[in-house]
């Protein structure tokens, strides 16, 4: 009987330990977010968002970095989303398990495992130097697109596979071609899941530093075209903090980043759950 009592005590103890681990993990999340917001939010004024920095960022705002982030991430999504969705469509609708599909999977899975600094090196060598695109929005966007491609492929594939087979059969049985079935019966139902994946990819792109710093550059000017260099928010933040230029403005930039990324991630979860609930009706 004592053995049994020992087991009970141990059970309670381990429950306590695991709960502590969870509280600590969640606590860390809350701590990081609150810390940054507490120190940085008061810096974030309309002027901070809409003015260019002066004295290398010691004073003034972060407007060019906001523009740079939107340009690089936006263009990266414009490139990666069609490629990613097309890849997912090919894998789900145009091929069964085959040598080709295994090759494609091998590509996306291994791309997903490559560290962002390697993407940065590659982007610098290939886009900046070899294709002579220079440090520019387009170089940064292409590098970032390669990096987020696996995420978009995976989430799109999941979303497409979740579309009931019956929809495809109905469409085919009515004499639709494969492409007509994809566009008419499959993709409309998969759009919510695909969009969720793209939103998550946007979140990842906005926060990325290592892949962008060597490809998009660190210029604080306002770009006139996609061939101009820019500085994104995380790069700006990194330079401010690491070079010790202005902790005040670093906190402000971090606060902007955190708020935007939290909103994007929460938005993606909200969208996912909402559509999941809707499709159950």
């Amino acid at each position: 009987m004592t053995r049994k009592r020992d087991e009970r005590a141990r059970d309670r103890a381990m429950t306590g330990v695991f709960m502590a681990a969870t509280v600590l993990t969640i606590g860390l999340l809350v701590y990081i977010v609150v810390y940054i917001l507490q120190k940085g939010l008061h810096v974030v004024t309309p002027a901070f968002l809409l003015e260019s920095p002066t004295e290398m960022g010691r004073a003034g705002g972060i407007y060019p970095a906001i523009i740079g982030t939107i340009a690089v991430t936006g263009l990266a999504i414009l490139i990666a989303a069609p490629v990613g969705v097309a890849t997912a469509v090919f894998l789900t609708e145009y091929t069964h398990e085959s040598a080709v599909s295994r090759l494609i999977r091998f590509g996306t899975e291994n791309l997903a495992g490559i560290p962002s600094i390697i993407f940065g090196l590659f982007g610098f060598l290939f886009f900046v130097i070899y294709l002579d695109l220079g440090w520019s929005i387009i170089s940064g966007a292409l590098t970032l697109a390669a990096m987020i491609l696996p995420t978009i492929v995976r989430t799109s594939e999941e979303a497409i596979r979740a579309v009931p087979t019956a929809y495809r059969e109905i469409s085919y049985a009515l004499g639709s071609t494969r492409w007509q079935t994809v566009t008419g019966a499959v993709l409309p139902s998969a759009v919510p899941g695909i969009v969720t994946g793209i939103i998550l990819a946007v979140g990842r792109g906005i926060g990325e530093t290592a892949a962008v710093i060597f490809t998009a550059g660190a210029s604080l000017g306002i770009p006139a075209s996609i061939f101009d260099p820019v500085r994104t928010l995380p790069v700006h933040f990194y330079i401010l903090a690491r070079e010790g230029i202005s902790m005040e403005n670093a906190y402000g930039t971090a606060a902007v980043l955190i708020v935007v990324i939290l909103l994007i991630n929460i938005g993606a979860y909200w969208a996912m759950n909402r559509f999941a609930a809707k499709s159950n009706v």
Partner: peptide, 9 residues
Amino acid sequence: AELRRRIGM
């Protein structure tokens, strides 16, 4: 596709 149109299911 045309065959499937002719033979509805």
